[in-house]
Design a protein around this nucleic acid. Sequence first.
DNA 1: GCCAACGTTGGC
DNA 2: GCCAACGTTGGC
Length: 158
Amino acid sequence: MQYWLFKSEPDEYSIDSLKAEKNSTGRWDGIRNYQARNLLRDEIKVGDGVLFYHSSCKNVGVAGSAIVVSEPYPDPLQFDSLSKYYDAQSSPDNPRWFSIDIQYNAHAKKFLTLTTIKATKELSDMTLVKQGRLSIQPVKKHEWEIILSACGILSEND
DNA sequence: GCCAACGTTGGC
DNA sequence: GCCAACGTTGGC
């Protein structure tokens, strides 16, 4: 089992949005960055753990956790000419962008802010701290455990 | 709204 | 394949 951190702007899609979906399961789409795409397409597996991170808002940090419940599949938005994620250079035969489905697991009982993450020595190696911009990032096991514990989330999905 | 740190594009 | 110009992300 591997661990990941997914960033989303809560105004667009939040941990509450995910929980409110049918079966609390939603599609993670709109990824338009090759580094993130490669992780999504090639590395992420069903059953992997996901930290749901809220970015570009008043309160930035880890808002909850989720679990990967599908294999990667072509992001349907890339073929939708009305979507802002439309990509005319992509085709169903040779899709450029991918999505996966994740299922809600828990809200952080205690919201873990970026400030706290940055102040935690054991988390100083995280991509989040070193390279702010990547929207899908790998998380090491010990980082996952520290963060879940700081959030007050029990590892119910182990 | 600012700006640093990336990423992408396109001329050569 | 280099690199300048431009675009985007995301914290503050």
